[in-house]
């Protein structure tokens, strides 16, 4: 029997404006949203409560998004991770997917597109269980 529960999304980005606005909008759409402005904080959040989907900025000071993605997939293989970047690069995009990212999206991404990515990811994860 499936319990209807809120989907938990962790946003990791060093841009506070992006973090605040996206968190507010996702919350309004019924998600449980956690935020972190660096990878260390993100790790703490992941340890603190179960997360379904992580939306992760590729480029942050003192933290490489792709390296952190690998860490997440190692410690929490069931979490889906979507990478966001302001600097599109084929090489980085493919490296991200090979490292286990579910998607590699280019900023600016519309809220609707982001929500669809999260929903599709969540559905696929749930069906795989």
């Amino acid at each position: 029997m499936k319990m209807k529960k809120k989907k938990t999304v962790l946003l990791v980005d060093d841009e506070h404006d992006f973090l605040d606005i996206t968190a507010k909008r996702l919350t309004r759409r019924g998600y449980h949203v956690l935020t972190a402005d660096n990878c260390l904080r993100a790790t703490e959040e992941l340890d603190r409560e179960p997360v379904d989907v992580v939306v992760l900025d590729v480029m942050m000071p003192e933290c490489d998004g792709v390296d952190f993605l690998k860490e997440i997939k190692e410690s929490h293989p069931r979490i889906g991770v979507v990478l966001l970047t302001g600097h599109a690069s084929i090489e980085a995009g493919l490296r991200s997917l090979e490292s286990g990212a579910s998607d590699y999206l280019l900023k600016p991404v519309s809220l609707e597109d982001l929500i669809e990515k999260i929903e599709i990811l969540y559905r696929d994860l749930a069906e795989g269980e």
């Binding site: 286990g100 990212a101 579910s102 696929d124 994860l125 795989g128």
Partner: peptide, 10 residues
């Protein structure tokens, strides 16, 4: 037993 990570990768 089958589990998929992400939308298939990994």
């Amino acid at each position: 037993c089958y589990r998929k990570t992400g939308d298939g990768r990994g």
